[in-house]
Amino acid sequence: MSAAFGAPLAAVVRLRGVLACMVVDEADGIVVASELHVGIDADVLAAVSAALFRGLRRSAEAAALSSVTYLQLEAERGFLCAAGHDGLVLVALAEPRAQMGLVRAAMMGAAEQLA
């Protein structure tokens, strides 16, 4: 893990139910830094998260809704969250038991530190 991103990642990944947290380059979906539990495929998570964030950011901008700052996808078996800042995306993968209010607050705070 890159030392520069250690604190923001740790702030998120220590929360209950969070399986992975990483910083990804929004443009190419490459991992910049990560904190993962065993069994998580970092490259896949980074690539699909960055693509989703990029697509929604562009859609929101095209619809004149300003740029997406945070997104949360809820599915049957968990959550995917992403917060963007300066071409970087902070991504978290969480289990259904995670307290998403806490995760969101931690993600927003951590994303501020990415700059």
Binding site: V44, L45, V48, S49, A51, L52, L56, A60, L65, S66, S67, V68, T69, Y70, L71, Q72, L73, E74, A75, E76, R77, G78, L80, L93
Partner: peptide, 18 residues
């Protein structure tokens, strides 16, 4: 995305802008 991450069917997506 949810298929790649084995998350099952998605139910909600919330996006926040400024």
């Amino acid at each position: 995305v949810t298929q790649h991450l084995h998350l099952g069917a998605w139910t909600t997506l919330v996006a926040e802008t400024s």
